[in-house]
Amino acid sequence: MKLEIVLTLVAVLIAIGFVLSRNAYLMGATVFVATPLLVVAVVYYLARVIRELRDHDVL
């Protein structure tokens, strides 16, 4: 799950950076980079979870 974690960490770093600096570019990055990053990370994570649950005949 390294990829998901890395994506998440980058997203959170951007968000923290924005909140600390209020810079316009970080503001943009938060919305258009961090959020998609997180979305993709969560999607990948969920895919993993669903796959595992299927394997265990839960879903």
């Binding site: 998901e4 968000a15 209020r22 316009a24």
Partner: peptide
């Protein structure tokens, strides 16, 4: 680490963005 907390973080960041956008400093950014 991957789902709950980051989503909360970014959620808070978004709220902060929207609310913070109200200030004159934000416009001046």
């Amino acid at each position: 680490a991957i789902a709950a907390l980051p989503v909360a973080t970014l959620g808070a960041a978004h709220v902060e963005l929207l609310e913070g956008a109200k200030s004159v400093e934000a416009c001046a950014g």
